[in-house]
């Protein structure tokens, strides 16, 4: 009975994971489709046309590059600003802490449609021209919080004694940061940047409100959905997904290898030592 129950939980867990990937599989499979008609929603015939001619449909690659550009700029600015806030939250005492926490938390819980609408209301009232700048402003605004949360978690997980040890070993504040704090937090910052980029690259709702005439990749997809999404879009999205998976899994494997190396029994190491 107990055996069945334990297996049952594992089976359910795997099924849920499979469920999470079903739509992605559909997207990937349909990237090899030659649709019958303009809507690429049901399987017709195998073809690699989309993969060999990625930019074959006007506007696809252009919007893709716009999204990459916006994503990169957003990631750089938001990662810097968010990391600074995370350090302040963990390492410094200041007035207005709960207000600060709230102002960081709320963007993560506000529906995108409300954020998009309110920001548009601001730009309209200021008669600020909509375009790539307004999209970037918006993206930085909603990514900062996620960066703060990610970097903060890493910082909090760091043993404060490591920094004390650095100070004890003749490292001043700068040297402590450069040789100890930063190298230890860097993986967290890199992870936060990756998250920031994926949030920006994939954002549709807020961008749509504040884009003006600029067409990002998601906005292109949205527009295309009415008249049929080109197969190239599926191919590009599959590519992005695979690239992200490669990055994430590589880091996972590297850290797993590292942990694996530690699993050598300590006695084996002791034995390698000449003892007095």
């Amino acid at each position: 009975m107990r055996w069945i129950r334990q297996r049952l939980l594992g089976v359910i867990a795997v099924l849920v994971l499979v469920y999470l990937f079903i739509p992605i599989a559909v997207v990937a499979v349909l990237s090899f489709n030659k649709p019958d008609g303009k809507y690429n929603i049901s399987w017709n015939q195998f073809s690699i046309d989309a993969w060999t001619n990625l930019c074959g449909v006007p506007g696809v690659c252009g919007s893709f590059m716009v999204s990459i550009r916006i994503g990169v700029i957003t990631t750089i600015v938001a990662t810097i600003l968010g990391t600074m806030i995370a350090f302040a939250l963990v390492r410094y005492r200041f007035r207005g802490r709960s207000t600060t926490n709230l102002l960081i938390f709320l963007p993560m819980t506000t529906p995108e449609v409300v954020m998009g609408a309110s920001l548009l209301a601001l730009f309209l009232n200021l008669r600020f021209p909509l375009g790539e700048t307004t999209i970037i402003i918006a993206h930085i605004m909603f990514t900062i919080s996620f960066i703060v949360v990610t970097v903060k978690a890493r910082l909090q997980g760091m043993d404060p004694r490591l920094e004390e040890a650095a100070r004890d070993l003749y490292a001043g504040p700068r040297a402590t940061f450069r040789y100890v704090t930063f190298p230890l937090v860097a993986p967290g910052i890199a992870g936060a940047a990756l998250l920031g980029f994926s949030l920006s690259f994939d954002d549709f709702i807020i961008s749509f409100f504040n884009a003006g005439t600029v067409v990002t990749f998601p906005i292109y997809i949205w527009g295309a959905a009415q008249r049929g999404i080109p197969v190239q879009v599926n191919a590009l999205a599959t590519m992005v997904f695979l690239a992200a998976m490669v990055i994430v899994l590589t880091t996972q494997v590297v850290s797993y290898r590292r942990r694996k190396a530690l699993q050598l029994p300590p006695q084996a190491l002791e034995a390698a030592l000449p003892r007095s």
Binding site: D159, R161, L162, E164, A165, A166, R167, D168, L169, Y170, A171, G172, A175, T176, V180, L184
Partner: peptide
């Protein structure tokens, strides 16, 4: 300051980098 003192510490649970 700590980094100016001729004193060094073996930390609890070592704090090795």
């Amino acid at each position: 300051r700590a980094f100016q003192r001729p004193v060094n510490t073996v930390f609890q649970s070592y704090a090795l980098f």
